[in-house]
């Protein structure tokens, strides 16, 4: 298991959260707590860069949904970048691939 690390950076499209490590039952609350401190402007795009994410369980999926809810409540958008294959499989299974805009990497996700 690798510890969760979240780095926030600003792109022209809005904040990018680089999520590294395991997003699971024990760590998902870190992302959810961070979201509550994140201010989004209308029409900004919150990008979750998952390139460094090593594991994601159902609690992690819930945190991703919480991120989407947070963005939408600020009338902002949300996107996932570089979703690892196992997580992509889960997203497809539960139909979330239709809900989250998916991008191959954070560069593509932050294009206006």
């Amino acid at each position: 298991m690798s510890p969760l690390k979240i780095i926030t950076r600003d792109a022209p499209t809005g904040p990018v959260l680089e999520i590294t490590g395991d997003l699971d039952y024990t760590t998902a609350s870190e992302l959810r707590n961070l979201l509550t401190t994140l201010t989004l402007q209308p029409d900004q795009r919150l990008v979750l860069d998952l390139a460094g994410m090593t594991f994601c369980d159902s609690s992690g999926i819930t945190a991703l949904i919480a991120a989407r809810n947070h963005a939408h409540s600020a009338r902002a958008d949300v996107a996932l970048a570089a979703v690892p294959t196992p997580t992509l499989r889960v997203l497809r299974m539960v139909g979330l691939d239709q809900i989250f805009p998916l991008h191959p990497d954070s560069h593509a996700a932050t294009q206006p």
Binding site: I65, R92, V94, G95, L96, Q98, I99
Partner: peptide, 13 residues
Amino acid sequence: PGGVLVGVLPAAP
């Protein structure tokens, strides 16, 4: 395929 988790969207397919 294509069914979405229940409870996430206001109107889910």
